[in-house]
Nucleic acid binder design. Structure first.
Lengths: 350, 350
DNA sequence: CTGAAAGCGCTAACAG
DNA sequence: CTGTTAGCGCTTTCAG
């Protein structure tokens, strides 16, 4: 290295020691000055600041965190793809709540099932996130995913544990905090609303085997229908519909049935979208109720079982931050209320 | 501490040293075994792994990162609120690309202008993120934001710099990489499309003073209109429309004008949503073209200037990861193509 | 194959 | 007000 004079291209970040040296003080003094701690003479302070500036010094947060030993200001979120508006809305709520506490959201999405989920949980834990939020549709189905959740979750029993919060899914028999939607109640509400309009051939679209949420919504729906003595709906139920494309196909198939269903209940916003695509520009429009509200549902006049995704995210973040209060800790479950939003599509009569 | 036998509640995370001690080996050997490095006798390996497991050991990523000295596996993103589908779509694209490289996305959103942006950039840089992506609508307006970007961006000229990539906004006169949309071309396309249908009283909705993107889209639109010798549109232009609510109000006002505009061009997806809300259930439906595609635009039959948000995110991530290749580095700008998607609303004639 | 020593960059704890 | 010493938890030398 010939020309190393001045302050030229250094191969590495300047360190506190370099700043201290340049300012002619000890590292600790430099540290104090840079952190705005008291007990630093004004002229010293200035010298340090100037030196830091000349060097383009930027404190190394990694080192600081390590030394301070505490947890980081990072909160992990494992979620489904943000391209799904449900996930992005909830994520937005989480982020807002965290922001108000000076924390940051680290995200990783997980379309690939429990195997990847496991890896992600490990990675976050190693990074010593302050808390871990899990909103992964696949968690609900595969016992492999739950298994890992179980291990991690139980860890939270001891003091050094990281708070885990599950979103939109309550891990079976685990002492983990969770925020869920009143799924069964939503299903019931939809059924009763359609029954009141005189519908009996109601087609339900969803994938209960795959998603716990669909399971609960479906159960609520089925209960209400059965309680009303109505059993004509079951031949129209589709239980393998899990995305826009499959929903679209299912609806097209349903429209060719004879007798045709007079109403449709879609178990989440993706399926509602698929249904709307399939029904667009068709003469016959069955009644439609969708679980999950969505943007432009008002313009399209779609009746939905709505809930507040932002609020859901905030609740989860709040749970994560208020941490485990008691020992032995008690599981906290927050249930987000749902309500029916009447917009026309659900009020069409048979 | 009376009962400290067995493996009970320890107040802190177990460390490598503890694992090593329990296994009766040196820390280094334990490290090797846990990292799957070669040159460890099988029985030793097993002893270490068992010890680690008994202790519930989890390597401390902070310490590891510090020691390894390199950059982390984190990539920072500063964006607008994820509740806006544009942001969440792009974020999803970024996340996917990063995932394929084994990296994770750290997000912080920024509704509050350049002051917070500055703080966030600092925080990310201190955390030694591998790269920093900025997709903040406010960046485009306030020189304060740009100022900070400038400082950071120039830092990337030297070797230790963190790659900066701007999304949807090209910082003026800075050597920063960016991914932008062909905004002007989109504006032109919209204008020409409407002109071809015989429209002349075209209302444009946006907020050019606030958003650089709107500025460019507006300019493209104006150019095309003026080139065609059409000047009737300008009295209908609204240049302070920046969200759903203001768009809705602007449309309502426009519908009371005499003569009423025969067509509307909304400069982003929020404004298109507002326009649709305002126009829903009205007798008179002006032609409508919106910038940005959106879910259900097909069902609603809305003609749009579309682009691929996911792809945009991926491009940005790619730029960030391929890092600064040359010295002195050259600015790389990727322009995402746009295309007109004809769905009916834009084809209505005056 | 294994270990001892040193140190990543910073900050507590205690002196001066 | 300032400096010294030590050490966060891990991994890199370099010797056994």
């Amino acid at each position: 290295m010939a020309h190393d004079a001045g302050l030229p291209h250094q191969r590495t970040h300047p360190t506190l020691v370099q700043v201290a040296t340049l300012a002619g003080v000890s590292p600790k003094t430099a540290s104090r000055a840079l952190n705005g701690e008291p007990n630093v003479a004004e002229p010293t302070r200035v010298r340090v600041l100037v030196a830091a500036n000349r060097l383009g010094f930027r404190p190394n947060g990694i080192a600081r965190e390590l030394r301070r030993g505490g947890t980081s200001t990072l909160v992990g979120l494992i979620s489904g793809d943000l391209a799904n508006p449900f996930y992005s809305t909830v994520a937005s709520g989480i982020e807002r709540e965290l922001r108000e506490h000076g924390l940051q959201l680290v995200m990783a999405s997980n379309d690939e099932g429990p195997r990847r989920e496991r890896t992600l949980v490990e990675a976050f834990l190693e990074r010593r996130v302050r808390a871990l939020l899990i909103m992964s549709s696949s968690s609900g189905s595969d016992p492999g995913g739950s298994f890992h959740a179980e291990r991690s979750c139980r860890m939270t029993e001891g003091p050094p544990g990281v708070p885990f919060v599950f979103l939109d899914y309550q891990p079976a028999g685990l002492p983990c905090d969770a925020v869920v939607i009143a799924n069964a109640e939503g299903g019931r509400l939809a059924a009763e609303h359609l029954l009141a309009r005189g519908h009996s051939r109601v087609a339900v679209l969803g994938d209960p085997p795959r998603y716990a949420t669909h399971r609960d919504r479906f159960a609520g729906f089925a209960d209400a229908m059965n309680a009303a003595g109505n059993h004509q709906w079951s031949p129209y139920a589709h239980s393998d519909v899990h995305d826009v494309a499959t929903a679209e196909r299912a609806i097209l198939a349903l429209m060719n049935r004879d007798p045709v269903p007079t109403a449709i209940f879609t178990l989440d916003n993706r399926l509602t979208t698929g249904a709307l695509r399939a029904l667009a520009h068709r003469r016959y429009q069955p009644a439609l109720v969708g679980f999950d509200d969505f943007e432009l549902a008002d313009v399209l006049g779609v009746t939905v079982i709505a809930h507040d995704g932002q609020a859901m995210g905030r609740e989860a973040a709040r749970l994560a931050l208020t941490g485990p209060s008691e020992h032995p800790r008690r599981q906290r479950i927050v249930t987000m209320p749902i309500h029916l939003v009447v917009r026309g599509s659900g009020e069409r009569t048979p």
